[in-house]
Simulated scan of single mutants.
Amino acid sequence: MLERLNQAMAHIEDNLDREVDVKELARIAGSSEYHFRRMFSALAGIPLSEYIRRRRLTMAASEVLSGQSSLLDVAVRWGYGSNEAFARAFRAMHGVGPQEARSTRKPLQSQQVLRFTLTIEGSASMEYRVVEKEAFQVVGRGTRVPLVHLGMNPAIVEFIKGIGRPVLERMEQLSDSDPQGLVALTSNQEGNQEGDHLDYFHGVVTTKEAPEDMETITVPKNTWAVFTSEGPFPETIQYMWRDVYTQWFPSTSYESVEGPSMLRTEIDGDTARAELWIPVTS
C-alpha cells in the first residue's frame, strides 16, 4: 500500500504544472478516490488539494527568485490566471508577495515532496471486528461543527448541552438496536485541518418513529469495521481515529467508503471506553 502511495506522490510531481487527476492518483494507489483523500489527509496531516497547492507554490517560488521569467509567466505556468490571484496565494504561503520576494530575497517557505514510510511504534494491538449491517435509522438532532484534533470540541459540547438532559434521556429510551445507547455520527467532512467543518448528529439507532422534536437519518446497508479502545478522555477517542487511518488501513485490505462514521462513548470520570464504527469495503 505504501509503495503505491509513493507512486501516486511521484505522479503528482510529474503533473504539477497541469491539472492533477485525483481519480488517476486513486487508481495508482489502488483505492477509491474517497478513501485515497481520507488516507492522504490522515497520513500527511493536510488535505490533498492543500499539498498540491503548496508544492506548486514551492516550485513557483524558485522561479520567482531566479528572475528568468516574468511574474505573470510564472503565475500562468503554475495555474493562476492573473498576477493578483498569484500574489494572494503566494503571500498566504510565504508571508511576502512575489514582487517583494524577488526584490528583497527574503526567506520563503517550502513544501517538501512527501514520501510515506512504515514506522513500527510499540507493540500495542488494535481490537476490531467486521460487521455486516442492514440499513438502519438514527433518531436525534444534528448540526455542523468545526474539526478539533486534540482536546474537547467546544461546539459539540455546547450543542449537546443545548439539547438538554430530558431530551437526551428520551433519546436513550428509543434505542433498540446496535450500537446501543447514544451515538455520534459524523459525515461530510470538508478537510482534515483544524477548523474545517463536518456534519455532527447525536442520537440513537432505533426502529421506532422519531418524536416531533427530533430528526431521522437513514444509514444504508454497509460492512462496518468496529474498533474499541479504552483510556483517558478525550485523547483516547482522537488517537483511535488517527491510528485507524495511519496504521490499521495501510496494513489491511480494507478501505473506507463514503458514509457516516459512528462513535459510541461511555465515560467514567476521566476514562472513556469508545466504540468506533467506520463503513468499509475490501
Rank of each mutant, 00 (worst) to 15 (best):
M9I: 00
M9E: 02
H11F: 08
D21F: 00
L25C: 02
A26C: 05
G30N: 04
A44M: 00
A44I: 00
I46Y: 11
I46T: 12
E50H: 12
R55C: 02
R56S: 01
S62F: 15
S66P: 00
Q68R: 15
A75M: 02
V76E: 15
W78V: 15
G79V: 08
G79H: 09
G81T: 15
R91M: 02
A92Q: 06
M93Y: 04
V96N: 07
G97Q: 00
Q99D: 10
E100N: 13
S103H: 13
T104F: 11
R105L: 10
P107N: 02
P107M: 01
Q109E: 13
V113T: 14
T117Y: 15
A124R: 13
S125F: 02
E132V: 00
A135L: 01
A135D: 07
Q137S: 09
G140F: 09
R141I: 10
G142K: 02
G142R: 08
V145N: 02
V148T: 12
H149M: 06
L150R: 15
P154K: 05
K161A: 12
G164L: 03
G164D: 03
P166T: 04
L174P: 02
L174G: 00
D178Q: 13
D178L: 15
Q180G: 13
L185D: 06
S187F: 14
S187L: 08
Q189H: 07
G191F: 08
N192I: 14
Y200V: 11
F201D: 10
H202V: 08
H202T: 00
V204T: 05
T206A: 10
T218M: 07
P220V: 05
N222G: 05
V226P: 00
F227M: 03
P232A: 06
F233K: 08
T236L: 09
R242C: 03
D243I: 05
W248S: 02
P250N: 09
P250L: 13
T252E: 13
S261T: 13
S261P: 01
E266C: 09
D270Q: 03
R273Y: 11
E275Y: 04
L276M: 07
